[in-house]
Amino acid sequence: MLKAKIFRVLVPALALMFLAAPALAAGELAKIKEAGKIRIGVFSDKPPFGYVDENGDHRGYDVYLARRLAQDLLGDENKIEFVLVEAASRMEVLESNKVDLILANFTVTPERAQRVDFAKPYMKVALGVVSPANAPVTDVAQLRGQKLIVNKGTTADIYFAEKHPEVNLLKYDQNTEAFNALRDGRGAALAHDNTLIFAWINENPGFVSGISFLGNLDSIAPAVKKGNTELLDWLNEEIVRLGQENFFHKNYDATLKPIYGDTVDPETVVVEGGVLE
């Protein structure tokens, strides 16, 4: 799912963004209101964040937020034109003005922040380690000299190669291959985005997320076209406003909880009011 081949670090650029002076001349909000709909880029095949369900309706954590934004901006949660984006095209669609806004599990990185403007985060992601329930790995120290399954080029791969060279990495190209390898017992554990691991263990009862929170904490935020400060400011205010009514926890309960189950603490995923703890 969250195929993060991107180098992740915490984002000093965020601070810069918050300080950016609003350019009033843009009139971007007025344009959206005039069009009567907001164009939002979402994933169509990345449950539980952005996907199309069996009835053809857009669903997921990102989509739940998208509908609320349309409600608050245009007075109708259906006044959205969903544009189906791919992970690789998220910046392109903004730069080429195909969408007003991206809500597609978009992890904030300094490289990306040079090309698009990120609003305040609404979700966070870290690494998690999943292992068999009967031999749980709860500390990285347990992995010394053991085989750890990762996906090539992902955050997990990079993190363990740099920080824990004592762990032997078993690398796969595809998510399904990697998880099948874990099921077959070819490694002691598997490291990936914790959000993905939560979803997987809920469907695979024999496994547990022994480590739910590892490495850098990355934030996931809406993105707008570089310089679209009017929409950016509105988004930032909106995210703070929504935090006051605990909206993102409601979103979690509606979209992620059915997938993650009760075993996951919402606080490991949800960012409320744009404040990353």
Binding site: D45, P47, D53, E54, A199, E203, I259
Partner: peptide, 10 residues
């Protein structure tokens, strides 16, 4: 692909 990714979870 959309169908597979949704149905494939179960």
């Amino acid at each position: 692909q959309q169908i597979v990714e949704v149905a494939g979870m179960k």
